[in-house]
Design a protein around this nucleic acid. Sequence first.
DNA 1: CAGGCTTATGTAATCGATTACATATGATCG
DNA 2: CGATCATATGTAATCGATTACATAAGCCTG
Lengths: 351, 351
Amino acid sequence: MAKRTKETRRPPAKIADVARLAGVSVATVSRTLARPAVVSEDTRNRVLAAVRDTSYTPNISARNLRVRKTMVVLVAVPDIANPFFAEILQGIDDTLSAAGYGLVIANLAGPPEKEARYVDLVCAGQADGVLLLCGHVMRSRDRDLRDAHVPLVGACEYIPGASFPQICIDNVGAAREAVRHLIKLGHTSIAYLSGPQSTILERQRLEGYRQALKEAGIAAVDGLIMPGDFTFRTGVEAGRALLALSPEVRPTALFAANDEMAIGLIKTVHAGGLRVPRDLSVVGFDGIPYADYCEPTLTTIVQPRRELGASAAAELIALMTTEKSAVRKDIELPAKLALRDSTCPPSTRST
Amino acid sequence: MAKRTKETRRPPAKIADVARLAGVSVATVSRTLARPAVVSEDTRNRVLAAVRDTSYTPNISARNLRVRKTMVVLVAVPDIANPFFAEILQGIDDTLSAAGYGLVIANLAGPPEKEARYVDLVCAGQADGVLLLCGHVMRSRDRDLRDAHVPLVGACEYIPGASFPQICIDNVGAAREAVRHLIKLGHTSIAYLSGPQSTILERQRLEGYRQALKEAGIAAVDGLIMPGDFTFRTGVEAGRALLALSPEVRPTALFAANDEMAIGLIKTVHAGGLRVPRDLSVVGFDGIPYADYCEPTLTTIVQPRRELGASAAAELIALMTTEKSAVRKDIELPAKLALRDSTCPPSTRST
DNA sequence: CAGGCTTATGTAATCGATTACATATGATCG
DNA sequence: CGATCATATGTAATCGATTACATAAGCCTG
């Protein structure tokens, strides 16, 4: 039970140890590891054997100090507890860590002083790149961050005219498709549960909603646009508002700017006696895992979250490793409508 | 529109720059920042002013190289997309990043070769500590990791007799409380939907279930223990199994080892015509946000996730900074039963 | 007022890797 | 065969901070 194998912790082998064991200079060891082709086969074998025997791994701090890199990228995410972002993060992590990068996750849902610390970190050159999972860079410190001249890639929220590459889905098109689906089912009174006004994402989804109505010749009714902010809570509030309407004016369908709100809304109207989809069809946006678990399962636009993260990470790596910052290309990934149980044709009802 | 402020990216200030500006030596600058008390007030002011003017931040790689630290901790998490862990991670991140540590998240849900890379990273001394959010350290590489003699702290899953501090809730007690609640409501036929057999967590929750039944004088029926693995899918399967039973032998209540399974099960039995809680009371475990969103809201044991993460991180910091590794104390955090809508007394029914 | 002590600061070694440059060896060629 | 060149390897400077040790200045005390 007591301390077994007392053997004092041996410090990790350094390059000099490997060199000594292999009978070569440190330069040769370093070269063997970095560009195996330039050393003779014989030497290479001896060095690699020595590396194995000492279980040598280069000291990252020393290397980074020398080559002036940090091998760290900062990922700014609006809310790490949000499952939507969690999966994007996985895609990012897969790609980035495979390439040897570590990631510092800046959770913008946390206290604002942390946010400032993250920006400082980047400005101080402690990160080789930044991945933004939101439109506003870092609220007030946008300019500081941009001026740090650190490679930047955006994902999720498309900012028209931004000066850095962005990996997104076609939000306008996807929203339009969602609403078209409702129209095709026969709905003509379709509400929209919006995201936070400040986001570009919101404006784009709203635009898609408007386009779909317009092309179908349905007049947009201002009263059918309900305020939300992507949270479950505002979904609940919108649900209550819907219940308060008299059946004659109540829309027969609703498009929510994200799944979480859609789920909150469905739960609320259910409790109030409305049946989904019979009395109200609902389409969400994002395709979070839970959209498939809830009751009824949610018809929604599913975003390729993992790929979104992976592509963004790949783009950032290209930007960080290539000196030509001309890489700069936006990528649009496909999102598709998943038909599930929360939508159906409107029930005919007496005026 | 074109490149504004072309000014070539100026490299970050280094300590020598600050020293020159303040008219002191680099040693004095370093000391001013590390131990302000040892320099004279006059010097201190000059140095701090110079630091501000140059917006100097110490180069982390250089510092780490010198003091032989990495300021990185590895966090091994079974599944980053699982909202339960997401919130624990937040607690960890808050505490750790406030103390200046970066965290590398080892997502065990990812490909196994990544896992090996993480263990290697620790063994190579590239992390100052490890936080384990799971019982098995890293599957096969347990011993390697332990032999690296890196400070270790466990959370969530309590391993009796482990050689490192652990921050947990009382799983046996909490499970017992959950089942006691069902018993108090009048249930006598109570099923248990288990977690993966291999985990200690599972054995502890099962033990709590058994204890509650025993103290109430209810015989444990093997057939009422249903296999699960913490996923939504196995919750669905268990739901189907329940539906297949004839009403006479069907339990009137069920305790699920986690919320996700409970939610899958409820959804399934609902679709099959059973009403929850009327025909089947369900208690979950964890208290994930969704347990409050689903229909009906889930009565469950809510774990103090953020605090769990924060305490574990604090403990690890103590371990990493104190040379005396005698800190070593386990912490048990309180979990409490949240009474919601998925439980009620059993409906009396004809034999 | 010499010697000892405290306080404030500077000098230079050090952490562990990378890499420009120098050197040594052997091959090639006119 | 001596000059030229390619190939393989070694030497030592360097990245930017920390800190042990040295030094200088001021203060006390017998």
